[in-house]
């Protein structure tokens, strides 16, 4: 369990560094901090004094940072300069859409990417492999926003199968609303997973233990699931996790294209409005998501690979 402890400590350290950088955003922003924190409000002597008091701007920097961090840890990032609502509530409003989109996209990515990559590796050099590899390359070359427009035009406007705009209210509506965005997001990512999976499976196919398994008459299902899938799981898990983290924080092109009020969209508008507390919270949240996903990947390694579990190899 030293492994888990080490990883947790590393994750905490990483978050600490990230919080310092995030707080530095305020100091680095052009203009006085009062001016920045006042945002669109009129700048009068009273309002400036109020802001100075509210944000303890007269205290030395480390004290200010400590106070900010103390609030942040308790989930208080202050109020949005724009909407005056607590930052946490602003983000909480947006999170379900983004989380739904990210989850949906990752399910599609794995559902398509894993079998396609495996199939390509098994038919190495054949027409199927060439087809899959080429499709993956094309999918990788189309940026998500271009894909979004193609999908919108084809399936929403021309065919009318899917809604064009918004995120829907009920669960069923949510699914239909998020289908096209999820596909747009998943296309390029599935291509990445295909390539990962193909490489991992090719590497696997050359392993003696795969031949030995067949030579002993191991059953077909067991060969594919117990051997092929499980042994390729680790590299693919790593990529899948990183893609999920990217989806949770940076699906902004797709959110924009489909008019989804998600986290990515929030980040873009917050930056545009110089809404510093929101930006700080989002940056910190994004970092926390990446750190958390990496921690989960490490735990998955622990579950899948006994060598890591027993500390036989340095992870």
């Amino acid at each position: 369990m030293a492994f888990v402890a080490r990883r947790l400590a590393a994750a905490l350290l990483l978050l600490g560094v990230l919080s310092v950088l995030t707080y530095a955003l305020l100091a680095l922003a052009p203009g006085d901090p009062e001016q920045v924190l006042l945002g669109p409000r009129p700048s009068t002597a009273e309002s400036r004094a109020a802001v100075r008091a509210q944000y303890h701007l007269d205290d030395p920097l480390p004290v200010r940072y400590a106070a900010w961090l103390g609030d942040a840890v308790r989930g208080d990032f202050g109020a949005s300069l724009y909407s005056r609502e607590p930052v946490t509530r602003v983000i909480a409003d947006r999170l379900p859409v983004t989380a739904g989109l990210a989850g949906y996209a990752i399910v599609l990515t794995l559902a398509v990417g894993l079998p396609a990559g495996l199939a390509a590796a098994m038919r190495r050099g054949g027409p199927l492999d060439r087809g899959i590899t080429l499709s993956a390359l094309v999918a990788l070359a189309i940026p998500p926003f271009a894909m979004s427009i193609l999908l919108l035009y084809g399936f929403a406007v021309t065919l009318g199968w899917f809604p064009v705009f918004g995120a829907g209210e009920t669960f069923a509506e949510r699914v239909t609303h998020l289908t096209l965005p999820a596909i747009a997001l998943a296309t390029g990512q599935a291509a990445v997973v295909v390539r990962q999976m193909r490489a991992a499976a090719l590497d696997l196919a050359g392993q003696d233990y795969m031949t030995f398994a067949r030579a002993r008459g191991v059953g077909r299902a067991h060969y594919w699931i117990g051997y092929a899938l499980r042994n390729t799981a680790l590299p693919v898990l790593t990529v899948g996790g990183l893609l999920l983290a990217a989806n949770l924080t940076g699906a902004l092109f797709v959110e924009r294209a489909f008019g989804l009020h998600g986290v990515g969209e929030l980040l873009v508008s917050a930056v545009g409005q110089k809404d510093l507390p929101v930006v700080q919270a989002l940056v910190l949240m994004g970092g926390a998501v990446v750190v958390a996903v990496n921690l989960l990947i490490d735990l998955a390694y622990l579950a899948v690979d006994p060598r890591v579990r027993h500390g036989a190899v340095a992870a």
């Binding site: 003696d208 031949t211 030995f212 008459g217 690979d305 006994p306």
Partner: peptide, 25 residues
């Protein structure tokens, strides 16, 4: 072949370090 392998004829390979699946007991 799947029916023959393992039950009629089985193959033991050279390298014990690569012949066993590292993830299985």
């Amino acid at each position: 072949l799947r029916g023959v392998r393992g039950r009629r004829i089985s193959l033991l390979m050279q390298d014990p370090f690569t012949m066993l699946n590292p993830l299985r007991t």
